[in-house]
């Protein structure tokens, strides 16, 4: 066996190991659960509630992330100002924060006895142990994924396209909507897909900040943990549902944008 063939064999084995390691546990969820358990688990009231809550809170968190994150990322990408590097680092901080720490941090900031707790109470806003708290937790942990990708996508758009738009009579706002967003769309979509996946699977920060109350704050990952100790099969079935929903979202994003666009944005 010559050197080149040996190297090819080595990298092939590495890839095969990685694929097996990454897919086997996911496949096991479906192989291990009894046929029909997936469907019947959805017949359960609490499971349906958890799924509905997960979808609602994730959609709301994603809407907030897109609405605030898109203009914020645009500013970070297109303007140079003192402290910009520091801001970029601060935005990425939640990425490296353990979820439990994120939950504690949220409690300390906007919890009932947190630094802003009094102010929120005066406005009759309660977050901890409420559905609104779930949305806050999801937004906190998922937004850096979108902000980072969106910032990179905006920064890579050719500036002369923006200049051209201005000389053709478009204001900065119209240029942002008509040229910047369409040009950065593949990167924005990739970022949104990452944030969505992170929000849908969020566990630690939600548990610490919002608790695990059925129908109010118990999202699918919390419901899975809740069942895990008592009914492993139910936990397994609910996990299967979450995998199916996540996969469905990932595939539909890829189909809408084309796999090529996502690959391009990842590069």
């Amino acid at each position: 066996m010559n050197g080149r063939a040996g190297f090819t064999a080595l990298v092939t084995i590495a890839l095969a190991t990685a694929i097996a390691f990454l897919t086997l546990p996911v496949l096991a969820i479906f192989l291990d659960s009894r046929p029909g358990a997936l469907v019947s688990s959805l017949g359960e009231e609490s499971a349906r509630e958890a799924l509905w809550l997960s979808l609602r809170t994730t959609a709301l968190a994603l809407a907030i992330i897109l609405a605030v994150g898109t203009p914020a990322a645009y500013l970070l990408a297109t303007r140079s100002f003192p402290g910009r590097a520091l801001l970029l680092t601060l935005v990425e901080l939640p990425l490296v924060l353990p979820p439990a720490v994120a939950g504690i941090a949220l409690l300390a900031a906007v919890g009932p006895s947190g630094i802003l707790g009094g102010a929120l109470d005066a406005l009759h806003i309660r977050l901890a142990l409420e559905t609104a708290g779930v949305v806050v937790a999801l937004t906190f942990v998922a937004s850096p994924f979108y902000l980072r990708q969106a910032q990179a996508a905006f920064a890579s758009v050719d500036r002369t396209l923006l200049d051209a738009s201005r000389t053709l009579g478009a204001s900065e706002a119209r240029t942002f909507l008509r040229v910047m967003i369409p040009s950065a769309l593949p990167g924005l979509a990739a970022g949104a897909a990452l944030a969505l996946g992170r929000a849908l699977g969020e566990f630690g920060a939600t548990l610490m900040f919002a608790g695990s109350f059925q129908g109010i704050t118990q999202t699918v990952p919390l419901a899975i943990y809740d069942r895990f100790a008592t009914d492993f099969d139910a936990a397994l079935a609910l996990s299967g549902v979450l995998v199916a929903v996540s996969l469905g979202i990932l595939v539909s994003v890829k189909l809408v944008l084309g796999a090529e666009a996502l690959d391009g944005a990842a590069r």
Binding site: D158, T160, L161, D163, A164, S165, R166, T167, L168, G169, A170, S171, E172, V179, P182, S183, L185
Partner: peptide, 20 residues
């Protein structure tokens, strides 16, 4: 006056056509 308020027909070096 901002660029959009000046009526300049600007032909850019690489033309800067909107790809989308």
């Amino acid at each position: 006056v901002p660029p959009e308020g000046r009526r300049c027909g600007y032909l850019f070096q690489e033309y800067a056509l909107f790809p989308h």
